[in-house]
């Protein structure tokens, strides 16, 4: 059975390696110092999609991301690894969205895609770590969800068998399709970019990226549909303006504080035997150990 797979992905600042230059003097974040990357667990989700595509010939993978126009970078990144096409959901009206407004916008876009069997996404994004968007999209679409998925074991008779990795064990569930499945970082790592696919898709562009190109160039794009990436606005997905962006977000950020830890006066030691023994004796004497 061929599957129509949608993969939800997000371009995120790489918060895992925040260096000293990532914070400005005034304590705010210097976003420019953090590279924008394909959210790691979304790559795990893409790998599950690619495996499903291999097992179910004729399947297609569409990447869907919401963000600024430059988020098209991760769509190409996905094409280089085996996805078939992608859509950037982008509009000023989407700005400032919390997870609920984000999931509403994504669910509108999925409705516009219309024909889908399975929606995959990472469990959570590393800039927010909320894990909320997947289940919220599922609820908005009125379909079941499987979170914390580690592996899609099989798809049979319109149902997916999925192994979940939980805090204290594993669980295997059977879910009828269509469904939303969010994938854990413990799942198979995404395959690397494929050299042939890089050659094929390196010039894939969205309408905003094609701005300023010559007539001849645009004609070449018309002749090569696979190189055209889509950009959808609020109007394109028939979204209700009251439910997107900051206006559609029930949660409001009241305050943001830089994290400062109270420094202590520390005793400095070396690895010398005498100093280590002295420390151990001290800890035993004050009943910290022993």
């Amino acid at each position: 059975m061929s599957l129509k797979i949608v993969v939800l992905a997000k371009q995120v600042p790489d918060t895992r390696n925040v260096g000293k230059d990532a914070m400005k003097e005034d304590g705010t974040i210097n976003r420019a110092a953090l590279p924008a990357i394909f959210n790691p667990e979304d790559l795990n989700a893409l790998e599950q999609a690619l495996q499903l595509k291999e097992q179910n010939p004729g399947s297609t993978i569409t990447l869907l991301t919401m963000g600024p126009p430059r988020a098209a970078e991760i769509i190409r990144e996905g094409l280089f690894r085996g996805a078939d096409g992608g859509i950037v959901l982008t509009d000023r009206a989407f700005a400032g969205a919390d997870t609920l407004a984000t999931s509403y916008a994504l669910s509108c876009a999925v409705r516009k895609i219309k024909d889908f069997d399975i929606i995959l996404g990472g469990r959570q994004a590393i800039d927010g770590d909320t894990a909320q968007v997947g289940p919220q999209v599922a609820e908005k679409l009125g379909i079941p969800q499987v979170t914390y998925a580690e592996q899609i074991l099989k798809i049979e008779n319109g149902k997916a068998t999925v192994k979940r990795r939980l805090e204290r064990g594993v669980e295997t569930v059977v879910v009828p399709l269509p469904a939303v499945i969010t994938v854990n970082g413990s799942a198979d790592e995404c395959r690397p970019r494929n050299a042939k696919l890089i050659q094929r898709y390196k010039y894939a562009k969205t309408p905003s990226e094609k701005q300023g190109l010559s007539e001849e160039c645009l004609k070449l794009y018309e002749e090569r549909p696979a190189l055209n990436l889509y950009e959808w606005s609020v109007n394109d997905v028939d979204a209700d303006l009251d439910q997107v962006g900051l206006a559609g977000s029930p949660t409001k950020v009241k305050a943001v504080q830089n994290v400062v830890f109270q420094a202590k006066e520390s005793k400095q030691l070396t690895a010398a035997d005498s100093e280590i023994e002295e420390l151990v004796k001290e800890l035993i004497a004050n009943h910290t150990i022993g």
Binding site: A263, K264, S266, T270, I276
Partner: peptide, 27 residues
């Protein structure tokens, strides 16, 4: 290190076995 009460500058491979050794000796 800024929030530590004791800072031992050294490799874990060196320090941890010594902690074990001197704990066993002194407890």
């Amino acid at each position: 290190n800024t929030i530590a009460d004791y800072v031992i500058t050294g490799t874990v491979e060196e320090v941890v076995p010594k902690l074990i050794k001197y704990y066993k000796k002194n407890s």
